[in-house]
Design a protein around this nucleic acid. Structure first.
Lengths: 199, 199
DNA sequence: GCAATAATAGGACGATCGTCCAAACAATGT
DNA sequence: ACATTGTTTGGACGATCGTCCTATTATTGC
């Protein structure tokens, strides 16, 4: 039964096209062509575009969880794990430059489709909870979630401006600053002074 | 000759729908219905959707420039002008919550349409240069542009996460933090220590 | 080995897309 | 008053959209 494979391939390709083109703009025919299958076959696996979108969201969630679990299993210090997260925007710059952050762009589209949808922040919540845990491991208590949100917000802003200006140097500099900030968090546990500029 | 009026109305409504629905998703029929005119009339004023998009970008640029000029003419201290900018996300939260930041979302769409387009960062550049000027007026020399980009990035990140989580309290807290940071910039001119947490 | 089920192809369907056009209408200059 | 120009309408056009349906081909359970 190669249908499971087909179904998975559909979700993977859909996740890619939803990212690079946008959900609304990507058609069933686009997907069928890219997959080398017929439109009818695609419809057989997903009766509606919304069903496909839900599957894609599930796929992204699983993918993200797997990545985060891997980082947590890699016996790194919590601040190094956070730096590992920050490095994504450099690692994936080739795509982010053209298509933005996959999490941010999908979330924005989902909010527009349905403002009250839980899905809009599900992937963000995965990162948020994971980052919070890392900050807690660093000894930060009360403000762990606040710091996690700041890291998320920071990376989102950098992705948008980096993409808008097509400026990789800016991105690298900002990530370097974020890395310093994370280190400063370790040194001044519970302190509120944060080094954000100059190396 | 009421055609100029019609043309302006088209651009205004298009700017609104491009924001709330997205450029790709908004059709000529959507616009015509909203405007109460025929599709043919719309085409008489703008031969192509791209021409309309360009007009909308020009409109946004003029609108933004006018707003910034107004703030600069309002005889405020430069740090208060920056705070005035930061306040936008609170002031326009009603729409940002559902449709994101109009500058960020349009920029993202423009990059996807044409990665090398100058238009993608034109509005951002307006804010960037204006913010840089304010920081210079505050006595910050070398890092004025860096600080401007940080303010931009910060507001973009907050808009995205605030919208994704539908959390106005988070937005207000972050803006308060940004305000403190701006004040700290004034106090520690040229210093690199930045207060980002706790009030 | 044969009925039952799943997978796939190909196309029909009504609707809507961006574009374009011909005709009616309004405004203007002389 | 009339010719000219600009505005507006309503709809035609080919293409494509999401959805759905019928046949044909694989796969499975017994």
């Amino acid at each position: 039964m190669s249908s499971i494979k087909t179904r998975d391939r559909i979700v993977e390709v859909a996740s890619e096209l939803f990212y690079t083109q946008g959900v609304e703009v990507t058609s069933f025919l686009d997907l069928a062509k890219q997959l080398g299958i017929s439109k009818g076959n695609l419809y057989h696996h997903f009766k509606t575009k919304n069903a496909l979108l839900n599957a894609v969201i599930g796929h992204r969630l699983g993918q993200t969880q797997e990545m985060l679990d891997g980082w947590e299993g890699a016996s790194l210090a919590p601040e190094d794990r956070i730096k590992r997260y920050l490095h994504i925007v450099i690692q994936n710059w080739g795509k982010i430059r053209f298509y933005g952050c996959p999490v941010g762009t999908l979330s924005s589209e989902l909010v527009k489709r349905d403002p009250d949808s839980e899905d809009a922040h599900k992937v963000f919540s995965l990162f948020r909870d994971w980052l919070t845990r890392q900050f807690v491991d660093m000894g930060i208590k009360d403000q762990a979630d606040e710091f996690a949100m700041r890291v998320l917000s920071w990376s989102q802003g950098v992705a948008i401006l980096g993409s808008a200006f097509g400026d990789f140097d800016y991105v690298k500099k900002e990530v370097a600053q974020m890395n310093l900030w994370v280190d400063k968090c370790r040194v001044n546990r519970g302190s509120s002074d944060i080094k954000t500029l100059e190396e």
